[in-house]
Structure formats: C-alpha cells, structure tokens
Design a protein around this nucleic acid. Sequence first.
RNA 1: GGGCCCGUGGGGUAGCUUGGUAUCCUUGUAGCUUGGGGUGCUAUUGACUCCGGUUCAAAUCCGGGCGGGCCCA
Length: 465
Amino acid sequence: MEKDTNFNEWYNDIVEKAGLSDKRYPIKGMNVWTPYGWKIMRHVDTYIRKELDATGHDEVCFPLLIPETEFKKEKDHIKGFDSEVYWVTHAGLNELDVRLVVRPTSETAMYPMFSLWVRSHTDLPLKIYQIVNTFRYETKQTRSFIRVREIHFFESHTCHATEEDAQRQVEEDFEILGKIMEQLCIPYSLLVRTEWDKFPGAYYTVGLDTAMPNGRMLQIGSIHHYRTNFSIPYNITYEDADGEHKHAHQTTYGMSERLVGAIIGVHGDDKGLILPPPVAPFQAVIIPIISKGNAEPVLKEANKIRDVLEKAGIRVKLDDRDERPGSKFYDWEIRGVPLRLELGMKDIEKNVVTFVRRDSGEKGTISSEDIVPGVEMILEIIREGMFAKAWKQQKENVADIDSLKDLPERTLRFGWCGSEECGHRLEDENNLKLLGTPYIPEKFKGKCIVCGKPTEKVAYAARSM
RNA sequence: GGGCCCGUGGGGUAGCUUGGUAUCCUUGUAGCUUGGGGUGCUAUUGACUCCGGUUCAAAUCCGGGCGGGCCCA
C-alpha cells in the first residue's frame, strides 16, 4: 500500500493490519481499542500525566453526565455544541424531568463545582485535569482516531486570579506541549484561530496543527483562554486580599486520541507503522534465527537477552513463534516496532546481536555485553531522527503564496488584512480552512491575498482532514 | 450541507445484468516439513448486513434501516 499516492486508503489499511483498532463495532464512529492500539494510547497518556503532574496539575475524574440546566448556562458554548451532543432522556421506564447531556467536553460539568471550590485568592491558581472519554455526534464521515464519536482525550482546566496569570498558564501549556511532542516525535504549529472558529465561549483559541502527508492539516489539540466568559455565568468568584469579590480567569488545554492518528500519519511508510520508541508497545523485538538442531542454544541466549533488556526497563518482545523469520520481519514492520534484534548461531559465535532500525532500515551489530546501553542509544537516536525528519516535513509542507490560483495541496502562508469578510471569502471560494495567524509573530510585509490591501499580518490556511 | 459507490466465512473477493447447487486467495485449527526477508504438503472450521416487499423460489429484483468508502461544498 502506497502512503504518498493514496493516503486515505493507506491509513485505513495500516490501522487494521497493525491491530490498532477494530472498526467493526456496530456504532458509527465508536471503535474498539484493541490491545496494541490501546498500549500506544496508554503510553501517550503516561507522558501527558507526567508533564501535567510536574507542573502542579491535579488529576480528577468528573461524571459523564451533565444536567441540561448546567449545560445551557453559557450561551455561545451551547450554540457551539447543541447540534452534536447525545442526550439521556430516560432512566429505566421514566422520562427524566431534567434531561442529561453526555459530555462533549467538561466545562459545564466542572464549573458548577469550581464555583464551590474557589472561595479565596489562596485557592488560586486551581489547576486540574482529567483523562476521559467524551461524546460528539459527528455527522460527517468518521475515521479511526481522527474523527470519532467517542473521543479519548485529556482536558486540563485552570482558574486564575488575573488575566495575566491565566496568560502565564497558556505559556506553560506550550512548554508542556513541547515536552510531550518531543516524546511522540510530532511537529506542530501554533495558530490563533479566527473569531468564527474559536472554541465556543472562548476569548481566544490557539490551535495545534500537524501536517499530514497529503498536505492537509490535522488539528491535534487546542489551548483556550476564557477570560471570565465562563466564570460569570457559572459564578466562579474569589475574595481577594482586600476583601473584594472577583471573577476568576480561566484556561483550558486539551489533546485527544488524534495524537495516535498523527503518529500513524506523520511517521508511517509503505511497509506500515513506524512508532516513536517512547510510545511503542514493544521498543525492540528479538527474532531468534533457528535452524535444524540449534533451537535450544539460540532460544536460551535469546531468552537471556530478553531478560537483560527487560530488567533494564526496555519494552522487549521475544518472538519465539514457530514461523519463518521473514514472516516475523513483515509482521513487526507493519506494527512499527522501532528496533529489530536478530539472534542466530552466527551472532552467538561472534558474541553479538544483529540489529535493524525500522525508521531507516540501517543494519548493524551490537556486542552482547553492551546490549543494554547499545539498545538504549539506538532507541534515542531513532527518536531524535524521527522528530527531526518530521519537523523537516512540517516546514517543507508550508508554501508561501501570493495568488489563489492553482493552489498546491500544502499548508498555505499568505497576507491577510484580518477582516472577517476576506476570511470567509477565502474559505468559501477555495475550499480551504483558515487556520489562523501565528501565535509567535512572524515578520511579513505584503498584501491581503483576497482584497489586496497592504498588510503586515500573515495567516495560514489548508484543507483539513 | 450535496452527490456517487459499496455491504458474501476473521480479512480480501467471484457470483448479481438473465432469481434455483456460493468461487478463489488469505487467515484460523491439527499434523508433518522448513528456518538470516512472506517454506511446502495434507486434513479441517468458517459467510450471503438487518427489516419489510415481489416470487413456487431472493446473495441476486424493489423499499427502508444500520454500517462502510469516495468526491464536492
């Protein structure tokens, strides 16, 4: 299956063949996480927990259901979500007086509680997160990990005394993002979304986008500054040092299972998945090369190496199935295991292990005594190489344009006067999504690509997945 | 939001036009063989998406649901 010429088919094929997800569950957009896929997700979640915990966020778990009365308190928010939420209308045989929303996101579940928890300026900042599933009734074509109706995600929610402190939180979120992405080897751009595309109820939204091989952009997360847009309707107030009652400023940050979709799309090749070592369920697989009469010594040595690596904390799999080695090579390549270790009599005689890198195909040997530092080093080189290559692709995908004729299938960068009218025209007439303006300002001098007025504002657009 | 296509063992398919016995590959299971890039042989399990209609008879024709995929906006 060719990734570059037919990305959509390639993606579906890989998800199935690598055993990441079973789409046959009989509800549209709700798939089964199969063991291999779920292991990847769990490792991603591990890095998320690690970075959020390290920055003083506390993990919580809120109920799945939200009373309609709470859900409807923030007007823009409800307008943004009411066409895509699931409702619980019955309990047993009784119709409910107050219908319940199955959370599409948890603002409206959390904020009534925040109003009880936040009393004093000494309660601030309040920084919490949860890793849960949310539900959105997608009407469009669904796709594993990328567009689903039950979404596994994390959401962090914070409350602050001042707008400046909330802004500091947004900056901290970028640092957290950077550290997580270093492990997943996923590049990203930070774009301030347009007014009409920001999160319903937000003051502003920064979208996190990563380029897919077909030139389209995949939104992998977002960070929002709410100011007091939610704290007012939800009455989240604190008493400051002078005894005055003020509304808290809030932020949220979330990323979903789309990260798994991004890993698949960004790194895979025609042979299958290529997993970044930090999230690979198996970082190395040992293939014993057995021929007649030597099964015992080879398997004994293979087990020994497996034990040594395992003890060192490396996730390793010894594939001792009764199959031909070639068949095993193909199996683990589809599944994206970063490092293959081959062990046969030839290696044992020379006291080495043969390795093959999944990312580059490079082949070599490691001496058996140095197997732990050797494997650790190669895994780190693979991670660095994958990250660097992905960033290069992300940057090369950007095309500077000064005309809307013959648009390439890339991320487009151009001048924009900033007006809503030009923005809508750009989107509607060219089948593009205006992703927004760079969060970190970029020097630019030119003309608005739609109306031609001189501008120093630069914007990005792409077709979205 | 609009249009088009599709649904047959676990996966991929033939059969459908012209209604009557469901094809092949792969996978699974058992055994032998083989073993540094998909060994080979033998035996064997396993399917017409659901509901309704037409008909003596439906995988096949008609309608709807559910599910899958593509294109356009």
